[in-house]
């Protein structure tokens, strides 16, 4: 269970989140939709502990653990995963080495045995096949020379390997064609189960046709202004944000 209570945050002294309250029970997928500038990405960075996103109030608990007290790597070990809107390219860091280092870092903190290179390859290959990723993507630098779709699939691959308790997908649909979108959605759906929950941040309803959420929330001007079932997303798609925002105001 991820419990966000009255969370406020600033970027460069400017208040962006103005009291976000949200609960995502285990096993559920929630979507956050909202117009540009609503604070969607700020919420994802604030939750994952990025520098420059200053928390000014509120609390975030993951299964009772205070996330805000933790370093980014500790949040990852606690089970939080952020799929980046713009995955970073890391020339000179091999993708396989990166994935295995991350996996072992997390396994270490969980008190699990590290996997060796052979075990890792076996694991990674199986996941990559599911995501239709060519095997040479393991040998290349992290995200270097990857297409937009390949980068997003690489994010999902990381999620599949690290097995988080909760994943935040920050505009994972941006820049994807319909085939890539389906592959990514299948990857997320494959993770669904009683021990996994997700927060899908998106501007459009399109992704939610493939990853059907249990709940949909509308974020505007740093607050959740409306919540509902999947039908809320369809209404937003049909009517735009204006109507929903007016109702909330």
């Amino acid at each position: 269970m991820l419990r966000i209570e009255n969370l406020t945050a600033e970027v460069e002294g400017k208040p962006i989140l103005k009291g976000v309250t949200l609960e995502i029970p285990d096993g559920e997928v929630h979507a956050i939709m909202g117009p540009n500038g609503a604070g969607k990405s700020t919420l994802s960075y604030a939750l994952s502990g990025r520098e420059g996103y200053e928390i000014t109030g509120g609390s975030v608990l993951l299964n009772g653990q205070d996330l805000l007290e933790m370093e980014p790597e500790e949040r990852a070990a606690a089970g939080l995963f952020l799929a980046f809107q713009y995955p970073v390219e890391l020339p000179g860091v091999g993708n396989a080495n990166f994935l295995r280092t991350a996996l072992n870092a997390i396994r270490r903190t969980r008190g699990e045995a590290e996997v060796d290179a052979m075990q890792f390859l076996k694991l990674a290959r199986a996941r990559m096949k599911e995501l239709s990723m060519p095997e040479d993507m393991l040998k290349r630098g992290v995200n270097v020379g990857f297409s937009g779709g390949e980068k997003k699939r690489n994010e999902i691959l990381q999620m599949a390997l690290l097995q988080p308790k909760i994943a935040i997908l920050d505009e994972t649909d941006s820049g994807l064609d319909i085939d890539a979108l389906k592959i990514v959605a299948d990857g997320v759906n494959a993770m669904r189960g009683p021990a996994f929950s997700a927060l899908v941040i998106t501007h459009y309803q399109r992704l939610l046709n493939h990853i059907v959420p249990d709940r949909v929330h509308v974020l505007a001007d740093g607050r959740i202004v409306a919540s509902g079932g999947p039908e809320l997303a369809q209404r937003l798609e049909a009517e735009g944000y204006a109507g929903v925002l007016e109702e909330a105001a």
């Binding site: 790597e73 990852a76 690290l162």
Partner: peptide, 19 residues
């Protein structure tokens, strides 16, 4: 990016220097 994947800061820095 590296730290968000669970890699401790020191190890992440070492990876980037090596890269």
């Amino acid at each position: 990016y590296l730290r968000s994947r669970g890699i401790p800061a020191g190890e992440a820095r070492a990876m980037l220097v090596r890269a």
